[in-house]
Design a protein around this nucleic acid. Structure first.
Length: 351
DNA sequence: TAGTCGTGGCT
DNA sequence: TAGCCAAGACT
């Protein structure tokens, strides 16, 4: 009998398996805590970016209990720069639930995992497969691509998802399902790549329908994305005589929720009127509007910021709103500052 | 269901 | 340069 897809893939995996910070040695299982933490970090984020964050997290918080005991603000600070900050808020909430209500153990069943904050269909399946070696079908962007090509599914995403999920589930083996899940993702990441797939070294070359039709690189097709608008605003960098800068805390949810920020005017579409934006300054001061500015792109809009600087005087310190605080430059790395805020500060300091 | 939610690397 | 995409979840 011919080898199944799973058998071919596992044979390939045994030869090409990558060493990753969260991956246990061959034949061993990764602890559920490390699987969960890595999978949350890897959502919409590249392996290369996650590596250092993962190492820092497990060194500082080696167990789910230690993470649950940490203040949210410390977790957000450690997460700063990774993006999608709701993941960090949910990570912390999930750690507390597992620690306080589940005796520190992650559920092994799908419904139990799906009930936890930040764990959706993909992550629940990945945890079940990798941590508990259960035959769960973990379909991420890599697997979507592999399956769409293997079966030449030309329906654009996201409409193709039901068919892709069904096809993917049909390939999951009962033996080594954890290795199989990781192998599928490795295959998508290193062989069945979005552009210039390396079909000649693919374990599925003999059965891949897209390869046979010479349409592999064009799959999966995607529905066109809405174009991003541009929002504009004025950021206010207030510096104390010792160089400390005024920061404040953002609202707990929504864009950059719970993170620290440099005060700014509202970010609006359309032309920026400096005179109007200056009325939104956090304190009265002799604001100096700087040359140039900061550009940053979020998932669904571009942001263009002009930066205004001012020096604080003692008389204004008492006027600071609640949630505001001074931060010296050497302490800036300890704060929960998203990348766009670090860009603003760098621009202001550089002058 | 479709919009919200970051960032960096690659082409 | 500008768009694409990455181990998606939530509302």
């Amino acid at each position: 009998m011919a080898m199944t897809h799973a058998q071919r893939l596992l044979a390939w995996y045994d030869r090409h398996r990558r060493t990753l910070p969260w991956r246990a040695p061959p034949g061993e299982r990764t602890e559920p805590y490390r699987v969960w933490l890595s999978e949350i970090m890897l959502q919409q984020t590249t392996v290369a970016t996650v590596g250092d964050y993962f190492r820092r997290f497990v060194e500082r918080w080696p167990t789910v209990g230690t993470l649950a005991a940490a203040p949210l603000d410390e977790v957000l600070s450690a997460w700063a720069g990774l993006g999608y900050y709701a993941r960090a808020r949910n990570l912390h909430a999930c750690a507390r639930t597992v620690s306080e209500q589940l005796d520190g153990r992650f559920p092994e069943d799908e419904s139990g995992l799906l009930a936890l904050p930040g764990i959706g269909p993909y992550t629940a399946a990945a945890i079940r497969a990798i941590a508990f070696d259960r035959p769960a079908s973990a379909v991420d962007g890599n697997v979507e691509r592999v399956i769409a090509r293997l079966f030449a599914i030309e329906t654009p995403l996201p409409d193709a998802r039901p068919e892709i999920n069904a096809r993917a589930a049909g390939l999951v083996p009962n033996k080594r399902p954890g290795d199989y899940a990781q192998a599928m993702m490795d295959l998508g990441a290193t062989v069945c790549t979005p552009r210039s797939p390396r079909c000649v070294i693919c374990p599925f070359i003999e059965t891949c329908h897209a390869r046979a039709l010479n349409i592999a690189e064009s799959l999966p097709q995607r529905a066109p994305k809405a174009d991003r608008p541009t929002r504009r605003g004025l950021a206010f960098v207030l510096a104390r005589s010792d160089g400390a800068i005024l920061l404040r805390k953002r609202a707990p949810t929504g864009l950059l929720g719970g993170m620290d920020e440099v005060p700014s005017s509202a970010w609006r579409e359309g032309k920026l009127t400096i005179a109007e934006a200056l009325k939104e300054a956090p304190v009265p001061a002799k604001w100096q509007v700087m040359e140039g500015g900061v550009r940053h792109t979020f998932t669904h809009f571009h942001l263009e910021l002009v930066v205004a600087r001012a020096t604080a005087t003692t008389s204004r310190l008492a006027r600071l709103a609640p949630g505001s605080a001074w931060c010296t430059l050497d302490k800036m790395t300890e704060r929960a500052l998203p990348t766009v805020m670090r860009k603003i500060i760098a621009h202001a300091v550089k002058g």
